[in-house]
Design a protein around this nucleic acid. Structure first.
Lengths: 191, 191
DNA sequence: AAGCAACTTGACCCTATAGTCAACTTGACG
DNA sequence: CGTCAAGTTGACTATAGGGTCAAGTTGCTT
């Protein structure tokens, strides 16, 4: 063999893969995972068909970039929460950080929604988030800092609703958004 | 003249108008105001072009049915709230009734969102709802039963978010939905 | 019952997006 | 440096929905 590369890709194909990834990151960041592939192709300077050749379509492309786009930040959020000792601060940090990521990254809401069930990496992320939510909420319930009748499904519903509103309306000012997150957090307390 | 009718519509056209209205009420009720016109035409037993002939398109059709579809219930909600003496119960009733209507009638969320700005009747309804919300919230603030930093825009945002989630996800069980409405109401209280 | 304006409609066109493929181009190896 | 597999792409198909119109049909008036 001539190198350490494991791929049989030709040089031009390798370059195109890199350009398409970069374009997808850029486009998904601004518009979410539903960005038309033709637009991504244009940014990358290739034709739409090349995306199908290299990634097999939107699902494969999502699989290829969701890590850099969302997974990194999501894992940071989960770890950050896990490091907060105070039970209430733990859940409050987790919820606030999720809301922050929704505000900055529409693709995060697409991930939570499992908008592309064929993308394995996306589904894995969504499931991981669900697991962590369940776990943190369980602890919060045990500690008595979150009302017993508030479930993981309730948090899921509220966050999807929030993400859809963000996508469908003019983006609210950060201050308004954060105040609303505060309201939501208040509603979690017992009584 | 041969009758008291003010319209110059021929008998077959009159019949079609009635059938289209009925079909639109039915379809909008189930699917919201975005139902494809072709589907409404099929239910009505006419061609899509006839809807354009009689109503001028979706906006005109919405204008023709939004009253029966949403306005009646919306005015009932506003009057019901206005009749509750206790300031907190007043706002709680108003918010709960809006959520209930969202659950039963997707077109109500379309109205709140002003999803069809060309439909005058829809816009008038949306504005009326905004006025009443502002007025009731003002009273609630005066009475000190709702936190000062909760604004009409906050209620608007929350209700749009809720309506979008209802449309995008499997409909939650009524009990879950009502519990979440309860959480939301709790978040309005001072502190 | 004949004529005509009112009415309806099938068959269009247009937009946007996903997805496919035959034919052309090009990188890399012997 | 010629060969050809790998790679690219323009042009295509398909789906879904909005919107329009020439041509045909029908209710109404006299």
């Amino acid at each position: 063999m001539t190198g350490t590369s494991k791929s049989a890709l030709r040089a031009d194909a390798t370059r195109n893969v890199a350009q398409i990834r970069a374009a997808a990151l850029d486009a998904f960041h601004g518009r979410g995972l539903a960005t038309p592939l033709e637009e991504i192709a244009k940014i990358a300077g290739v034709s739409k068909a090349t995306i199908y050749n290299r990634f097999g379509g939107r699902d494969g492309l999502i699989d290829a970039v969701i890590g850099e786009l969302v997974a990194t930040e999501m894992y940071a959020i989960m770890e950050r929460a896990q490091q907060v000792a105070d039970p209430w601060e733990c859940i409050a940090t987790y919820v606030s950080d999720r809301r922050d990521l929704q505000y900055r990254e529409p693709a995060f809401t697409d991930t939570l929604r499992m908008a592309y069930p064929e993308s394995k990496n996306l589904i894995a992320l969504a499931n991981k988030a669900t697991d962590v939510t369940t776990e943190l909420l369980h602890r919060a319930h045990e500690a008595g800092v979150v009302r017993r009748d508030f479930t993981a499904a309730d948090l899921y519903y509220a966050d999807i609703a929030n993400g859809l509103a963000l996508a469908a309306m003019p983006k609210p000012a950060r201050a308004d958004y954060d105040r609303r997150t505060g309201f939501f957090l208040d509603s979690l307390r017992p009584q």
